[in-house]
Design a protein around this nucleic acid. Sequence first.
DNA 1: GTGATTGTGTGACCTGGGTCACATTCGGGG
DNA 2: CCCCGAATGTGACCCAGGTCACACAATCAC
Lengths: 190, 190
Amino acid sequence: MNGADILQAHIAKMVALTPEQHAAIFDRFTPLSLKKGQSLIHEGDRVDSEYFVLEGCLKSYFVNDEAKMFILQFAMPTWWASDYQALYSGQRATITVDCITNAEVLKLSNADREALCAAIPAVAHFFRWRTNRGYVALQKRLLSFMNNDVKIRYEELLQQYPELYNLVPKQLIAAYLGVSRETLSRLYHP
Amino acid sequence: MNGADILQAHIAKMVALTPEQHAAIFDRFTPLSLKKGQSLIHEGDRVDSEYFVLEGCLKSYFVNDEAKMFILQFAMPTWWASDYQALYSGQRATITVDCITNAEVLKLSNADREALCAAIPAVAHFFRWRTNRGYVALQKRLLSFMNNDVKIRYEELLQQYPELYNLVPKQLIAAYLGVSRETLSRLYHP
DNA sequence: GTGATTGTGTGACCTGGGTCACATTCGGGG
DNA sequence: CCCCGAATGTGACCCAGGTCACACAATCAC
């Protein structure tokens, strides 16, 4: 399946659009091919776009002053990634987005998104829905953080995204779970 | 300032609307007066509305199987509250929303929100923006959770919402910070 | 007022997870 | 095929924060 089809299928799950509309939408996106390790957004950048993942896996993360990394999101195919704080507010990026594997993404600028939302109400609806879902998912993650210990959070994560297990280094999974790599390692090597 | 004015000012901060449109919007909301302790959404309920706070303070929280409470949000005036997971998915509520103090709120049903969004594109824009803000704020909270210890999180919270200090019991603040009340108490009584 | 909640301080003790240090294994480039 | 850096396992030790238990307010109902 090519990029246009993947994007179309993704949007069509939520709102009904004509082929012409899908074409008009796709037209606003810029395809990018990325190599493992390449970064899309770097701390301090101006951010004017978000990215829709077609293939591969990205991570978005924050690095604190002790150089410790905290992963906000692993972005798998059909997920979106950006520094939304920076994108929406115009401030400089505080988080970094880069590639865990080679990846294919579609880039959409803030301006193009807004143009699409203004032109096609169903697209505005789609993006509203998308952020709603993201919000709810984030709330769930926060609750799990407060409620459960590492082991349970790890198992939840693997249950939801089994691919991650052999796709990303355990260190990164630890950084997502908010624990040290040693602790994660000890979970199953007591 | 009455409810209509508060709501209007809140929306006008983000999108420009005519007085007629503001009136049409307000028309969809139902004012409710609530007593301290009264609950708007209870675990297991069907949820078909969200609430805009005019006055007072609500909390939304999850209670785990050991009866431990985790507060997702203190909803102060001009904040919105609901069980969004339940509201958007149609599933039954897993979280509870109730009043920490007497409160005045405006109730808006899912159906009315969607009707407004469909009728007035700027309203769709407003709600998209609102959730975007919420998403970013939640990300920030999650990061702070992974990054900082209780003391720092507590100070961040008080700096952002100084009113909370004498408005809500320390127990609840502890439940928001994700620590025991004893730990919170010991922070400043060593 | 008085008795019953509901909130808060505090001591004693326990434990999940952090940190540091070092050994081991693995994957890919030359 | 061999070497190097990245990723992982593991031991020793430490500490923030949890739990339990009990003492004191403060607030409310009547």
